[in-house]
Design a protein around this nucleic acid. Sequence first.
DNA 1: TCTCATTTGTCCGTATGTATA
DNA 2: ATATACATACGGACAAATGAG
Lengths: 246, 246
Amino acid sequence: MTRYQELRQTLNDEIAAGVFEIGGKFPTEFELCERFGVSRHTVREALRALEDNGLLSRQAGSGTTVLARKATALYTQTLDSLAGLFDYATDTVFEKRHEGFVTIRERLAETLGCSIGERWLRFAGLRRLATNGIAICWTEIFVAEPYSAIRSALGDATDPIYELLQRQFDLEISEVEQRISAISMPIEIAQALEAETHAPALLVRRRYFAGSANPFEVTLSIHPGDRYAHTQRLHRDRKRKAPSTG
Amino acid sequence: MTRYQELRQTLNDEIAAGVFEIGGKFPTEFELCERFGVSRHTVREALRALEDNGLLSRQAGSGTTVLARKATALYTQTLDSLAGLFDYATDTVFEKRHEGFVTIRERLAETLGCSIGERWLRFAGLRRLATNGIAICWTEIFVAEPYSAIRSALGDATDPIYELLQRQFDLEISEVEQRISAISMPIEIAQALEAETHAPALLVRRRYFAGSANPFEVTLSIHPGDRYAHTQRLHRDRKRKAPSTG
DNA sequence: TCTCATTTGTCCGTATGTATA
DNA sequence: ATATACATACGGACAAATGAG
């Protein structure tokens, strides 16, 4: 590993550990040069990477500000708004209804984008708003067989499964493919969601990749069209601004 | 403007003008140093920016490759796949059916996310695949009144409207909000699209911002559920790879 | 308003490491 | 193995933005 990558890692860990206050000042480039015995060029390269990850914000004359403890994962859903129906209620709870291995058949192979005959670990259930208990979608989570050992480590279902996979198998998510289509609400799912059968619904499929051409996790979510809209904000610029102190 | 920004601009323009072949080699850092009389550091800073924009790909030992003529706008739809229905046909044609000013009333204010009483310039029509003429969606484009002068400059409808706005009014798009929801196909639109009435459909709304809190353009697209899926690939890393020569 | 010290941004030169053909 | 070209790293200098006095 190169020197600026090591430095980047070190600083990353310190930020994650809470050594620096969010919104507070980060050590100056000169201080980091002294502390780690590297040139300013090396420090700047490390800081640039941390800035790209959204952890730091740099400003000539003012210094470097800490923005966050963890990199904002590009691949998590920015549930910015629930179409105004639930005024920015955010936390949801997963209510597991099924769990077990499945062997992929024709229709499922098509929806999942995998091959017939493969075995996947499958979880299925409802996702509800934590505040009022309203069911916003039916969710199916498929985990590739090599990683099915996470089944045991799944007692507390608060964390997203891909985070558990990242920790337990040291997987680095490189890419996420998201496909959104419109379907008729299937009968069984309509019953579980207490929604209208055959009403328009959103089918959101996400496939998570880590280097390989094959995903290690695939999730399906079916949302009633009148309860949910998928909202995303896309920014053009990498650099982010620190909130003004004024 | 700084030197590396000038250089960046110059190289950007040359790439856009087609001076270099897509997939071909870009001048080496040393050559650029000589040609522009700047240090290697300056050249690398400019190249880094162009790489971030997706125009170039750099590889130690191999050199710098040209990936594209124009920056892949983060905010344009990555029409990666049309759900496998139209195997990677990309180019679409807009067939204008309506054009004129509208005053926003209650229902439209809600769908557009703007205020009642505002006046917007509206274009509406079909979008077809260039190859086989199949209609993939009904599109409505709303332009805020201050920018409605682009109406005259709209003879050739090949370019996206936000690009025309960018050029004519020097607007820098800073953010795009995208909302996807599921609706029943409205009767009038079903007829235009030759699709089934009340079948599930995707409603995609995009709002384009340029600094201000209010969008300067809003587009609506209604897609028949069986003809279209919205697909996106989200990468974690900035760097892209050049296709292998083999 | 102006000056001044601080901090990041830009730019130069040079040397060595590493990936690729 | 050798040459090429990008990657990393060091050093130094000045510019520009910021905030304090």
